[in-house]
Amino acid sequence: MTQKGVQTVVKINIGDGAAIPCKKDSGLFTAWWLTFLGAIAIIIYLCVVEPEPYWRILTFLPDGVLVTFQVTVLSIILSLMLGFITGLGRLSRNRVFNLIASTYVEIIRGIPLLVQLFYIYYALGRINLFQNLPPLAAAVVAMGICYGAYMGEVFRAGIQSIDKGQTEAARSLGFSRAQTMMLVILPQAWRTILPPVGNEFIALLKDSSLVSILAVSDLLRRGREFASESFLYFETYTMVALVYLVITLFLSKAVSKMEQRLNYYERD
């Protein structure tokens, strides 16, 4: 970016989740390809050379992968909605709205996710209305509330990264606050927000393994079930780890592709 008056894109780095490959290391011999192909190769090798127990483990896991995805996708949708509201709240000039959003973030960031999961699960159980809530729903609510706080910070930083001149230009033309946000700020902020959201998505997928303690039969729980029946702990968790690795690597690639497409109006 050399032109005056054109904003540079701020990168928000949240050091969690798999590293998102960037444009520069797009060759064949990158860490990403090495890990991805390596993981696939090991899975294939194990299943071919020792189909008993590895192939049996691998075929036992897909149900869990599905549940893991279910929890992850639903939680991310909930956390995006919460995060959007929280991000706006943190930037709001309305004192009450601002205070509520900030307090929410403070509380959530101060409690470990595992504790939150337990707490929300059992707290929801105490409310009559939610007594028969399936574990999966409770898990999604807990994960969504937790990640909503982190998402809120991502949204806030993304919105704040847009130059104040953009708001002033839009307002000068006669756009209202809301129109300025929807038409000018968010379409630009999205570019800054997406990479960390992708990161959070991947981190959430990994953290979703925690819901296995809530009787949700996700990937890890399926593994535990298999292991406790067969006593093949090492073999099972090897397979579980490899499957998680392949999924997260796949997702990090998808996020980086999406990121590149979002930069369509940037001069190279």
Binding site: G5, V6, G165, Q166, E168, A169, G174, S176, V184, P187
Partner: peptide
């Protein structure tokens, strides 16, 4: 103010065009 501003064109030092 949103209606009043429609009568006022403003040009900034840093152009502030919408880059997207």
């Amino acid at each position: 103010i949103n209606v009043i501003r429609q009568e006022l064109g403003m040009v900034f030092q840093n152009f502030n065009l919408f880059p997207h």
